[in-house]
Design a protein around this nucleic acid. Structure first.
Lengths: 162, 162
DNA sequence: TTCCTAAATAAGAATAAATACTATTTAAGA
DNA sequence: TCTTAAATAGTATTTATTCTTATTTAGGAA
C-alpha cells in the first residue's frame, strides 16, 4: 500500500503540473512538504511532516508547513483524515481508498476495496446535501497494541506521546 | 435521527446504571455532561458541551468537561468522531450508525443503514489487527453550504468560527 | 441520619498546537 | 536580468487541552 519510487516521481510531476495550473508557485518548500505526505504510508500530522522535511530543508518554519498543507487541501491536492484525537492527519492519496485505524496508538493504514468504493448511498443521506465522497473507517487494535494490552479498557482514547 | 425525550430518559437511566456498575460516582456534572452529548443531533466539541451544560451548572469548569468526556470514552459510554479539523467531537450514540459530514462547516448527521452495518471486511484488513467496528463516513456539502457557495474551491478546509 | 474517605471538582496556571504578523526572500513572467 | 506579487522565516500571539492543588461531594459504614 506504499508507493514505489516510480509512482512517487510520477506524482511529483503531476503535482508540479497542478500547481502551475492553479497558478501558485512551485516552491522548494511546497514540493518537499507534498513529497513528505505523499511518500508516507501512515498519515503524518503537521509536526511529523515538519520534522521530516526539516532534515532536508533546515530553514523550514512550522508555520509554512501549516499554511502549505491547508492551501494544498484547498486546492484539492491532499485530504485530511479524521483524527482520533486532536491532531489532524494529512493524506496525499487522492485515489479512492479506505482506512484501518488503531484506536489505541492511532496507527492508520490505507486499504482498497472496489466494493466499498461503490456503496449505494441511502436517499435520506442524499437529501442532506451534495455527496462528494464516501470512505469506510475500520477501527480496532493494531497487532502490536493488541499484544501489549490485556487490560480492561482496550479502546481507550489516545494519549499521543511527543 | 434525533432521540425523543423518552429515549433520552431511558438512556439516562442506563447511563446511571453503567456508572454504578463501573464503580464511578454519578455526579451531577457527569450526568449533565452526558445528557448534553446524548441529546444533541450534531456532535458537539468540548467547548460546545461546556457552554450547554454551563447554563444549567454555572460552577462547571472546562477541565471537568474534558476529564469527564475522556473517562466516559474509556468506559465505552461515548465515542469520538474523526474531527474534520482540530477539535474532537463526541458522540453518545453507541448504536451502530454512520455519518454525513459537511466538508465546509463541519455539520455532522447520523444516519442508519443495515447494509453499511454488515459490510464484509477484506481479509487483508483483518490481518492488520483486531477489528472493533466499521463506520461509513460520507463527506460532502450540506444544503446551506452548497447554496451559499458557488466559488471554485468548494471542499476547502474548515475555518470554524468561535 | 451522620460521619468518613476516596473520588471528583473548580480555579487558575502551565503546556502545546495552531495561527498571525512583519520584514525578507524568491519564483516566474516581462 | 529586472520586477513584483507571492511565499517564507522567525517570532509573537491565540486557542485548545492538560496539570496542580485546595476544596467539595457521593456513597458506603456506623
Amino acid at each position: 500500500m506504499e508507493f514505489e519510487p516510480e509512482a512517487l516521481q510520477t506524482r511529483m510531476k503531476h503535482f508540479k503540473e497542478q500547481l502551475r495550473r492553479a497558478g501558485v508557485k512551485a516552491t522548494h518548500q511546497r514540493l518537499e512538504i507534498f513529497r513528505e505526505v505523499a511518500k508516507s504510508g501512515d498519515h503524518p500530522d503537521a509536526e511529523g511532516i515538519y520534522k521530516g522535511v526539516h532534515k532536508r530543508v533546515p530553514t523550514l518554519s512550522l508555520d509554512t508547513v501549516y499554511r502549505t498543507l491547508w492551501s494544498l487541501l484547498d486546492l484539492g491536492l491532499i485530504t485530511t483524515l479524521g483524527a482520533t484525537r486532536r491532531r489532524v492527519r494529512f493524506d496525499a492519496n487522492m485515489s479512492s481508498h479506505h482506512h484501518f485505524i488503531c484506536a489505541k496508538c492511532g496507527m492508520t493504514r490505507d486499504f482498497y476495496s472496489k466494493k466499498f468504493d461503490t456503496l449505494e448511498i441511502p436517499a435520506a443521506v442524499k437529501a442532506l446535501g451534495i455527496v462528494e465522497k464516501t470512505q469506510v473507517e475500520v477501527r480496532g487494535l493494531c497487532i502490536s497494541c493488541s499484544k501489549e494490552d490485556n487490560s480492561k479498557s482496550n479502546v481507550s482514547h489516545i494519549k499521543e506521546g511527543k
